[in-house]
């Protein structure tokens, strides 16, 4: 039974700090072999989870959600009203998305998502979080200098566009709904989904125009 005691856990960390190998790969290997030897996990199950989050569960799901919202106004309304229930229509509910909220970009608002206290992320719709999302640099700066962060990602905002930063301090998770770019009239969901970047659903990308990068 957990002690729930800060002092105890700090002492355990100190002991681990002094005795564990420095190499991360060795640490994880030791943890895995101990769990397997104890009969607590199965290595093939670990393989299955790695594969699931490498091939099946990732930002392509999010991109499909966004593309559907762009082409189906009723779905978009459901996504804005109750994202948790809307993503169930696509079977994309799951890990960390029981309290999902969609925040919509517009000509006057740009949304940016962060977790300053740890690394909360809507896994079942966006997959494993990018490494930068979990760094001290992003977590510290996103709430204090979001425009400078955005500029590093190549997003420059006019003063009249307000930034809304969402710090995931509770179990709510945030999905940014980017604006549908012009020049995509008549495109189908599949074509549109190809335009949606992972970063645009976190808020570190904004202009998804098909002509972007070719001009």
């Amino acid at each position: 039974m957990a002690t729930f005691d800060t002092k105890n856990i700090a002492e355990v960390h100190q002991a681990l700090h002094s005795h564990l190998p420095s190499d991360s790969a060795l640490r994880v290997k030791a943890l895995e072999s101990l769990l397997v030897e104890k009969g607590l996990v199965n290595s093939e199950t670990i393989d299955a989870w790695v594969e699931a989050y490498s091939e099946e569960i990732g930002p392509k799901r999010g991109a499909q959600i966004i593309a559907k919202a762009w082409t189906d106004p009723a779905f978009k309304q459901r996504l804005l009203d109750n994202a948790t229930s809307a993503i169930k229509e696509l079977d994309y509910h799951g890990h960390a998305t029981a309290h999902l909220k969609t925040v919509e970009n517009s000509t006057t608002v740009h949304n940016l998502v962060v977790c300053t206290l740890c690394s909360c992320y809507p896994f079942s719709v966006l997959g494993v979080a990018p490494n930068w999302y979990k760094t001290a640099a992003y977590r510290s700066r996103a709430v204090r200098e979001p425009r400078s962060v955005l500029a590093e990602f190549g997003v420059t905002l006019a003063d009249e566009v307000k930034v809304h930063v969402w710090d995931s301090t509770a179990e709510l998770r945030y999905l940014v709904l980017p604006e549908r770019p012009s020049g995509t009239e008549g495109w189908n969901e599949e074509q549109l989904a190809d335009l949606v970047t992972r970063n645009s659903m976190i808020g570190t990308d904004r202009d998804l125009s098909p002509s972007k990068g070719t001009s």
Partner: peptide, 19 residues
């Protein structure tokens, strides 16, 4: 030791992790 699960089973299990 627990029995292994397949990738499809992992994907299905993930849908139940919406705590």
């Amino acid at each position: 030791a627990p029995s292994p699960i397949s990738v499809d089973e992992a994907v299905a299990k993930d849908r139940k992790r919406d705590t």
